[in-house]
Amino acid sequence: MANDEHREGIKGMANPGRYGIERVAYWMMRLSGLGLLAYFIGHIYETSNILRGQVGWDEVLELTQTTEAHIVLAIVIGMCVFHTVNGVRVMLGHGGIGVGKPARPDYPYEPASQNYRHKIGIYSAILLSAIAMMYGMAVMFGE
């Protein structure tokens, strides 16, 4: 094998289907984080065009008024809301809040840390991001 340590690599990290909604949330958190970073860089480029004066600024603003740009912005809204809500859940979990209490485990050993509170948090993050995306699209395409 080319990989002596037999690591799964990005391929294994990117396979969210095997370990339930928590692993899906983990993967979405990484994707939305990278997406927001890309948007941040693009946003800096966009706003830096103000240095080109009124004409340059208007040209860039025109680019953001296209259907494609609106779809990208709607995705950015979704990523932003998901990353924020899920981030709050993960931060609370990182502090040991809502992960359950240690106890003698009984078969079939359902992990207490994967409890309904965190599942509700994940589904809430997905739902809120979907609502925010729809609202954003209604505002952008509504006129």
Binding site: G20, R23, V90, V99, P105, Q114
Partner: peptide
């Protein structure tokens, strides 16, 4: 906190809880 470690533990150790 992906929690996959806890899901596969055959002894109910729940490493994700311990780590948090």
């Amino acid at each position: 906190f992906a929690g996959s470690c806890s899901q596969v533990c055959p002894k109910g150790v729940d490493p994700a809880m311990g780590i948090q």
